[in-house]
Simulated assay, not measured.
Amino acid sequence: MPPMQLDQTDLKILKLLQTSGKLSNQELATKVGLSASPCSRRVKALEDAGYIAGYATLLSATHFDLALTAFIQVRLEKHNQEVLEQFETTVTAYDEVQECCLLTGSDADYQLKVLVKDMAHYKTFLLEKLTSNPHIRGVHSSFVLKHVKQKSIIPLPE
Rank of each mutant, 00 (worst) to 15 (best):
K151L: 08
K44A: 13
L115G: 02
S20I: 04
V97E: 00
R75I: 07
E158C: 15
K12W: 05
T104N: 12
A93C: 15
V83F: 03
D7V: 07
Q98D: 10
T62L: 15
H63W: 10
K146W: 02
L6M: 08
G50Y: 12
I52A: 06
V116W: 00
K31S: 12
L28R: 01
A93V: 07
E99Y: 07
L11V: 14
E88R: 05
L156P: 08
T69P: 00
K123F: 12
K12R: 06
E128Y: 10
C100L: 09
A29Q: 01
P38I: 09
G54I: 06
L102K: 01
L156T: 15
S35H: 05
H140S: 13
I154Q: 01
A67T: 13
A120L: 10
A45G: 14
L46H: 06
Y55R: 15
S60H: 09
V74H: 04
Y94M: 04
E77L: 15
L34P: 13
H79V: 08
A53P: 13
D95S: 12
N25P: 05
G138T: 08
A93I: 08
C39N: 08
E85H: 11
A29G: 01
K113E: 12
P157I: 12
L156M: 13
G50E: 09
Q5I: 12
E85M: 15
Q18F: 04
Y122S: 08
D95C: 11
L59W: 02
K146C: 01
E47P: 11
V148N: 01
A49T: 12
K78M: 12
T131W: 00
T30A: 14
A36W: 04
F125W: 13
T104H: 10
L127C: 04
S106I: 08
F143I: 11
A49L: 15
L126N: 11
K117E: 09
